[in-house]
Structure formats: structure tokens, C-alpha cells
């Protein structure tokens, strides 16, 4: 029988797996569910989602946008080509339509990715509920008795539940990056790629983003730009405001599910796996170096946190120096990563 578009079924019940980051966690879970083993780091690496971006003109709560990765949905889109996967995405005008469609897909036996706002998800710890609209979770069923949705939120150790009105609220939150009820699911099964082709292509793209984006706010030049912004932070009676900026940098690097060191450790894990998949031992050695770069990102985070709590005097010049060092290290690293593929 010919398979229609919505009829691909998984081979086994859904299995929740703990991950660091929501989007890579959801996408690797979807791919695994439909039959292709794929780790979270492989999802990050294959979609070339590692990056650095400093966009001072986009403000979130009065602070500039800083990200250690590509924009939301980059992983959902980026896995399609290497895995021969077609993702369907749908957004909705009204919460009622969005919920009806989600229910229909779940009834059909699918697992469905959802974009949500962290603030409206009651199962999140109170202190982590900020207005961040691009959190990804996976719905894999609904409790017949009370109507709760069964969710696999990859950043939690165990599956969670969410009442229907709360989930509707989270899916239809408004503001920057409003999800508009976005849901996504695959149209076909992923296929095992030719690792010797897709891995070098994905790494080259990341190198290009890090070293040669024509905008000085992305990649290594973005790190240098942030260093300059930190150096110029006012001291004196403006210190609390300056500290908020520095704390914000650290939050984006560590607290917002990155696996530590602003995704650098996760990408190192990807490189290690890539070395085995396409027999390029050089990538394994570079993975070790990237772990050390991740360690120095954590040193920056620690230095900043100590200054925020006044254990050390607030010294923007020193923090800027640490950031410049990171920029220089990554410039050297991605240059050598590119040469290792030649």
C-alpha cells in the first residue's frame, strides 16, 4: 500500500531522552523516533547550528540579543537536507485551531514538535520562567482522563505533563519570536546519510559562519564586538546596569540550555563523533581543543559571576580581555578546523 503523507508510523513507543538544548533535543528525538539513531550533538553539528551573534539593536528586556548558536528553527531546517527529511511546519491564527490540529496529529500516532514560551509552562522552575518564546518541546500523547498533554521537554530528565489551557497559552504567547502555535513533524522517514559528505559540508558551513560572515556582529568578529561593548561599560553609579549586561552574557552562555561553554562542549562531542563516522582522526584531536575553549568560556563566566556578587572588584577591562582571548582562540581554532578538512 502506498504511504500517504501523514501515515509514517514509528516502530516503537516514544522514548524520552535528556538533552542540553531544546531544539537539538527535540529534533534528535524526532529523528530517532522514526528510526535513525541520532545524538543531540550530531543534530547540532549536522545543522551547522553553532555560532556567535551579538545584535545590540534587538533588545530583550532592555538587554541586547546575544546568542552562541544560530537563530531558532535553524536545526529544524538544517537537518532536512543531510537526512533527506521533509519537515512540515504549521502556524495558526487561533489557539482553538492550533489545539485541534495538534490533537488530530497525536490521534494519528505522530510525535509533534511545538514552539512555546517558557514563561507560561507551569512545570518549569519559577526562577527560570522568563519571557522567552522559542522553547521547543515534543508532544507525544494526551492523557485520556484529564486531557493533559504528555510532553517530552528535552531539558528535563523525565517526561512532563501540561494542562491544555496552559499549553495553549505557551504556544500562542506574543512578542519577540512569537510562536503563533508553531508545530512541526516529519513527512517521511530520515535516511542514513553518506557521512563522508554531509559532515565535512556541515563543518565548512560553521567555519564560514564563524570566520567569514560579512557582518561584524556574527562569528568571531561578534565576540570581538562584545568585548569592545564590555570594555566600554560605564562604572561608578551605573555599575548595577553594567553588571546586568555582563550577567546577561553569562546567562545566554550557561543557563540557557547550551550544555556548558555556550554549546562549545556539545560541538566538541559532535566533532568526536564525526571523527569516527568519517574516519578523520584529526577531528577528534580538534574536539579536545574545543573542550579547552569551552573551559575558558566557563572561566569567563566564573570571573563575571564573582564580580556581580562583589567577591572581586567590577573590572570591565579584565572581562573584555578574557572575551578578546576567546575571540582569538576561536579564530585560530576554526581556521585549523577548516584546514583539517582539506
Amino acid at each position: 500500500m502506498q504511504h500517504t503523507r501523514t501515515s509514517i508510523q514509528a516502530l516503537r513507543p516514544f522514548h524520552h531522552q535528556h538533552a542540553s538544548h531544546c531544539e537539538s533535543g527535540v529534533m534528535s528525538a524526532i529523528v530517532r523516533h522514526y528510526g535513525l539513531p541520532l545524538s543531540e550533538p550530531m543534530a547540532l553539528g549536522l545543522s551547522s547550528a553553532l555560532s556567535f551573534a551579538y545584535l545590540p539593536f534587538i533588545k530583550l528586556g532592555g538587554l541586547p540579543l546575544v546568542a552562541y548558536r544560530m537563530p531558532p528553527r535553524a536545526i529544524i531546517r538544517g537537518l532536512q537536507k543531510p537526512l533527506g527529511l521533509t519537515m512540515r511546519t504549521e502556524t495558526f491564527r487561533t489557539a482553538a485551531k492550533g489545539q485541534a490540529r495538534l490533537d488530530a496529529l497525536l490521534d494519528d500516532g505522530k510525535v509533534v514538535g511545538l514552539q512555546t514560551s517558557v514563561f507560561w509552562l507551569p512545570y518549569f522552575p519559577e526562577n527560570l520562567r522568563f519571557h522567552f518564546n522559542a522553547h521547543n518541546v515534543l508532544a507525544y500523547g494526551r492523557d485520556g482522563a484529564n486531557g493533559d498533554y504528555l510532553l517530552s521537554d528535552p531539558v528535563f530528565e523525565e517526561p512532563v505533563r501540561c494542562a491544555a489551557p496552559d499549553l495553549a497559552r505557551a504556544r500562542f504567547a506574543r512578542g519577540v519570536l512569537a510562536p503563533k502555535g508553531l508545530l512541526y513533524y516529519p513527512d517521511n522517514r530520515p535516511t542514513e546519510p553518506d557521512w563522508h559528505k554531509v559532515i565535512p559540508a556541515a563543518i565548512r558551513k560553521t567555519v564560514r559562519i564563524m570566520l567569514r560572515t560579512p557582518v561584524p556582529l556574527i562569528g568571531v568578529r561578534g565576540i570581538e564586538r562584545v568585548a569592545r561593548a564590555v570594555e566600554r561599560l560605564p562604572t561608578g553609579d551605573k555599575v548595577p546596569q553594567s553588571k546586568l549586561f555582563v550577567g546577561h552574557l553569562v546567562r545566554m552562555q550557561e543557563e540557557i540550555g547550551t550544555g556548558g561553554g555556550g554549546f562549545r562542549y556539545m560541538y566538541a562531542s559532535f566533532l568526536e563523533e564525526a571523527a569516527a563516522h568519517c574516519t578523520r582522526p584529526a577531528l577528534g584531536e580538534l574536539a579536545g581543543e574545543l573542550v579547552e575553549i569551552g573551559d575558558s568560556w566557563r572561566e569567563f563566566a566564573l570571573a563575571a559571576a564573582r564580580m556581580i556578587r562583589d567577591r572581586d572588584p567590577f573590572d570591565p577591562g579584565r572581562l573584555a580581555g578574557l572575551l578578546r582571548g576567546q575571540g582569538a582562540r576561536e579564530k585560530d581554532f576554526f581556521g585549523r578546523l577548516e584546514r583539517a578538512l582539506a
Partner: peptide
């Protein structure tokens, strides 16, 4: 979930109860 190098030499997920620097920010 954090990524770190395990005893077997491979980088993988290690669950973390949290870091003070993170808590501060």
C-alpha cells in the same frame, strides 16, 4: 544535561545539579 569528557575518554552527557556561577546570574 552538560557535556563533559567521561572516564572512557568520550564526550557525553553528564547530569548536573547546577553551578554557583549560573545561580548568581
Amino acid at each position: 544535561a552538560m557535556y563533559a569528557r567521561g572516564a572512557d575518554g568520550h564526550i557525553g552527557i553528564v547530569p548536573s545539579r547546577g553551578w554557583e556561577a549560573e545561580e548568581i546570574v
